[in-house]
Design a protein around this nucleic acid. Structure first.
Lengths: 125, 125, 125, 125
DNA sequence: GTGGTCTAGACCACG
DNA sequence: GTGGTCTAGACCACG
């Protein structure tokens, strides 16, 4: 189930993207799975098709989805990984900021790693 | 040195906040240090005083700066920590999203922790 | 009706905040009610959108309003209460000062309590 | 002891005024008591004489202090009370706002009155 | 249409 | 000199 929350500060299209990625990581969506159509998902989430479209387009650009003309949108079957150095740089910046904020909350590196242990889904899953 | 980057997607006031926090974590700014005045920093960064003011106000709300009327802004001397549960929840969400994105780039939990080891500033620093 | 008064010593954004809270307490604004848009209220009050924005932003931070991107601002439907200990400390200080001033005007504790009886809106309203 | 706190959001002159009024209410300063000179208090509090002067002037206007040319400043011996309707109106507004904020924190009228019982210094003191 | 950010100022209280 | 508030705009992302 793809979910959004209007109170969330993230834009809706970003929430959809994040939600889909979570499902993939957790194995609830698998390579070549067919995604709901733009109109269908828009209707389910009670939002405008434009927003779903933006999320799908963005995910295609990231290589997460494949759009097949007249067929619909599918989960990409290209192996996870090698999604570009830019993405890595971006994530490193997010990580750096997170580390700073984390320390600022008075938490230690150890509690951060513990948290990651809980959150990180092993590849074998 | 507080720096901003026009290409950065983060709003300027947020870049200023992050920059100051980094300086504090790395010991370049110490408790009770006087910050440049709003106008001074605005002039240095070639932005409007309003934007600096927003950053400073936000930092004061977070307990990072102390604003003294007619005197200026100072680095808070309250021990880092106890910044509230809300902040922790917020950070956990960011961390969760980061973990997902990280896996999506094909990286392992181990490389994430290695990266943290590099980034996280030990308490003794 | 949200009203401001130029002669009032409180800043305009604070008058707006107080005015909205009053309306809520008196039941004239209810949970999930849509607030006028920033531009709309600014135009009605003949002030700049920035000032209304400041009031709304502050109210959202206090949990009084919910800001929904592209939709507008709404009265929060989270139950009143649990607004944090900090707020309570703040109010206690205001109360302490009020008590002192009250005594200074030659009034007794009893007249203060009478006044509160008049002002305090019972839960059933 | 008259005290000020630079972190306090109230202007210093106002803190001085409040502090003196507290002392009077609690009987630590009595009618006709001589106040420290402007320079003396300024030096004790490590602030500029201008600020103390403003506090004293304002207190004189309120009838709390009496300035005697060449002699200094004294606590007024006019009975507490009858300090004007304007003051009462002002206090009522503060009280109204306090009531609203109080309710907003989820507190009841009863806890407000309890708090007043603790804070209000009986006239006989 | 909606809020968020920013510009380039102004005036004010406080110290 | 300092921060706080406000004006009267502008441009942007999002929906």
């Amino acid at each position: 189930m793809i979910t959004i929350n209007i109170r969330d500060k993230r834009p809706i299209y970003e929430q959809i993207m994040d939600s889909i990625k979570e499902q993939i990581i957790h194995g609830l969506l698998k390579p070549n799975d067919k995604m709901p159509s733009i109109r269908q998902l828009a209707s389910t989430l009670e939002i405008t098709p434009n927003t779903v479209s933006k999320a799908y387009t963005e995910l295609e650009r990231e290589g997460v989805l494949i759009t097949v003309r007249g067929k619909g949108n599918f989960i990409s079957d290209t192996p996870i990984g090698d999604k570009g150095e830019k993405k890595m740089e971006e994530l490193t910046k997010v990580l750096q900021k997170l580390c700073i904020e984390w320390q600022y909350t008075g938490q230690t590196k150890e509690t951060l790693i513990e948290m990651i242990d809980k959150l990180y889904v092993e590849e074998e899953n």
